[in-house]
Nucleic acid binder design. Structure first.
Ligand SMILES: [Mn+2]
Ligand SMILES: [Mn+2]
Ligand SMILES: [Zn+2]
Ligand SMILES: [Zn+2]
Lengths: 180, 180
DNA sequence: TTGGCGATCTGCATGACATGCAGATACGGT
DNA sequence: ACCGTATCTGCATGTCATGCAGATCGCCAA
């Protein structure tokens, strides 16, 4: 996405207002490679602007995505992740800690599709017209490889003491029965 | 996933019970290529077994996934989709109607990753060890290409008259403001 | 600089999806 | 047919996201 200054100009030119909340989010998102969720962004924003509302973070993220300044992804980690990198790229997703990293795939556009049923269409497959391609590599990030235990203790995201309420990123286990 | 008969044997051999609810779901899932959500499966199951509980559908799907008989995917359509096709394959997802179709990608395993930052690791990238690769092609299915209007009226899933409560699959629009 | 229109913010309600829980039920070995 | 226990069902709870309405404030004009 563009710089905070450019976004401010763009917003004004569209008749939208440049509020301090929006400016803060512009800054927090610019060059941000962490693929934050709305709530993660809200936590950081709350530090610099204590009264800011989670609702406003959602609104602004939605607006920016609608304007094409942000991409939003759902990696199945419970919450949507937002990405100011609007170029064509793909992602590594750690199944242990949820971390997301950018990756550039050589030849992602020239993937050859082979049939499930039917014949190829003009621009796609079986009449399906492909608009975009998302590639997600799932595995374990460097931190989580080192630490064979469950969720890695990444800096600035140590284990929540009060008790975790976020989805478990532990790798799949074998069939487990309910408690007796 | 395996046949209902094989699954019954497998369940019993694990000390799990073969209930009519499970048998029904085995049948509904076997060779099912529709990538149903839990609720979609529940609707169909309810026809053949009126009292069945949505909770049981979730339980059984979770158990089958844990046993490796099913894959579950989250395409960002609101609900997880379940897939008895456990082989390596990828997906076409219609952004207009939510339909999911299998697709086989030539050379998906030999994708060449290029850096975001850092050096390649032994088995992956920048210390990231890839365990699986998911490729999703988003676009419009044949039905939705024909019908330029919004959600296509697929058979057996006509527009809910009472009022839609599922995510809008309409393609992204331009920045829209709230009502005055 | 001040006035005022209307977009925006905030707080709360509502909604979709998924899981935890406990008593009633029924599978399956005996 | 009996019994132990896995399972089912109904409901409560939890998370993420959006709808709503009154208070607030950005921004253009006078
Ligand atoms: Mn990215
Ligand atoms: Mn599939
Ligand atoms: Zn990790
Ligand atoms: Zn479609």
């Amino acid at each position: 996405m563009r710089s905070p200054a450019e976004l401010s100009t763009e917003f004004r030119s569209l008749g939208l207002k440049v509020t301090p909340q929006r400016q803060l989010l512009f800054r927090l998102l610019h060059d941000n490679t962490s693929h934050p969720s709305a709530e993660a962004l809200f936590d950081i924003a709350s530090n610099q602007m204590p009264g800011i509302s989670l609702r406003t973070v959602y609104q602004t993220l939605t607006d920016l995505a609608l304007m094409g300044e942000l991409q939003s992804f759902d990696f199945g980690n419970g919450a949507a992740r937002f990405d100011p990198n609007t170029g064509a790229h793909h992602h590594l997703v750690c199944t242990a800690c949820g971390e997301v990293a950018d990756v550039y795939v050589d030849g992602a556009d020239r993937l050859h599709l082979a049939g499930g049923s039917g014949t190829d269409g003009p621009d796609g497959f079986d009449g399906f017209v492909v608009a975009s391609t998302d590639i997600v590599f799932r595995g374990r990030c460097a931190n989580c490889c080192d630490d064979p235990s469950a969720a890695a203790s990444r800096p600035a995201e140590a284990t929540p003491p009060g008790g975790s309420h976020s989805p478990q990123f532990t790798d799949p286990a074998l069939p487990t029965r309910r408690k007796p």
